[in-house]
Design a protein around this nucleic acid. Structure first.
Length: 377
DNA sequence: AAATAGCCCAACCGCGCACAT
DNA sequence: GATGTGCGCGGTTGGGCTATT
């Protein structure tokens, strides 16, 4: 609705923060908490708007910020989450402890995005820029399904992020209030009650259930989530364009077990061309979609995420994609030609299965170990 | 050594959501 | 229900730094 007027006030300082200003802000927040950002500058003796103070604190002064180079693990996480969530930096940041959304955004824009572009992949759609793949019914259906899944997880992650923030702010307020021990205990219980069963990706839970205990035709049991796919409250619109749809058939460094050694000498451009050719020739690309059996009205079951032969096309999509990127980031000019189009029964089918399992288990661990699980953090 | 280009990132801007009145 | 306020988010900018010419 209304625009915040705080920054329209004249006489407020803008631009880079001085060490003195940092010191004032830091000292004030350490002693009193930030409370109302709007009121903070006056109380702290700063000639800044509250918004500027909040930004300075959240992006720079906060003590729990990790600075410096992103690790390859962090890169991988960003790429994977971006493929799923798009530019929802705050949601992505909730799964990268000690990194700010701003930092992640900058890193994406200055590094990862360019890397994608260089490889001929549209960083927005995560599709090859010259998308020569024909759209068949099965694929369209699949894209729609995947879009729906991604929307779900996006909504969930947003909710998760909100929970985190609420918990944070309540804890701050709690700290600022002068309460008796019993009152404190009561409020603590109320505000930072033990979290409900860990929020995690339904898809991943489904996958975990699948990978740990394949069962026929049953919903995931024990997670508390697998059975409930009622519509999320989020009304966000998740563009299907952010989905990493066609990227990964036959790509990924881990698939190089079938590669000709000579191919490793090829440069990135050639790699991508080779990749595209293989995608275009792919058979599993379409059969995988046709065989996708899950219903958007029903539950996500381990079976619903797989094809008839137990292969998981959704996972292929993500896995090869991130591997490809990370591969490039590490200057490994290996080919990603490994997973042949007929790989359902090919040389790396079983490997793929294991890789995918590990891949998604890693993400699941990442998600489940996110700050949400901690009442205080 | 100077000029230019490109990179990087802190900070700003404007929008939209949630909530209060 | 309409309006105002506070806040958070994502996009963008601008200036410092480094590399290249």
């Amino acid at each position: 609705m209304g625009r915040s007027p705080c920054c329209e006030n004249l006489g407020l300082k803008k631009g880079p923060w001085t060490p003195g200003e940092d010191q004032k802000l830091l000292a004030y927040i350490e002693e009193f908490g930030h409370g109302s950002w709007r009121a903070l500058p006056a109380k702290a003796g700063l000639k800044r708007c509250g918004k500027s103070c909040r930004l300075r604190w959240t992006n720079y002064l906060r003590p729990d910020i990790k600075r410096g180079k992103f690790t390859s693990q962090e890169e991988q996480t960003i790429i994977q989450l971006h493929a799923l969530l798009g530019n929802r930096w705050s949601a992505i940041a909730t799964h990268l402890p000690k990194r700010t959304d701003n930092e992640i955004k900058n890193f994406w824009n200055t590094h990862l995005k360019k890397r994608l572009a260089k490889m001929g992949i549209d960083p927005v759609t995560h599709k090859p820029k010259s998308d020569t793949l024909s759209v068949v019914d099965g694929q369209s259906k699949y894209e729609a399904n995947l879009s729906h899944m991604a929307q779900w997880e996006s909504a969930r992650l947003e909710a998760e992020a909100r929970l985190v923030k609420e918990s944070k702010s309540r804890w701050n307020s709690f700290q600022n209030d002068q309460l008796s021990p019993s009152e404190s205990a009561q409020l603590l219980n109320k505000w930072v009650a033990p979290p409900a069963p860990p929020l995690s990706l339904d898809i991943l839970n489904a996958w975990q259930g699948f990978s740990s205990k394949p069962s026929k035709g049953g919903v995931i049991s024990g997670t508390g989530y697998g059975h409930d796919l009622a519509s999320p409250t989020s009304t966000l619109t998740f563009s299907e364009n952010v989905l990493p749809i066609p990227l990964t058939v036959g790509i990924g460094k881990n698939s190089s077990t079938c590669d000709d050694e000579n191919v490793k000498e090829e440069n990135e451009e050639e790699d991508w061309r080779s990749c595209k050719e293989r995608m275009e020739n792919s058979i599993t690309f379409t059969t995988g979609f046709h065989d996708m059996a899950f219903s958007m009205e029903g539950s996500w079951t381990p079976e619903s995420l797989t094809t008839g032969n137990g292969h998981v096309p959704v996972l292929d999509l993500m896995e090869g994609f991130t591997d490809l990127l990370l591969d490039n980031s590490n200057n490994h000019s290996s080919s990603y030609s490994g997973r042949d189009s007929d790989n359902a029964g090919g040389c790396s089918g079983r490997d793929d299965y294991e890789e995918n399992k590990n891949y998604w288990n890693n993400i699941l661990n990442l998600v489940n170990s996110s700050p949400t699980g901690s009442p205080f953090f």
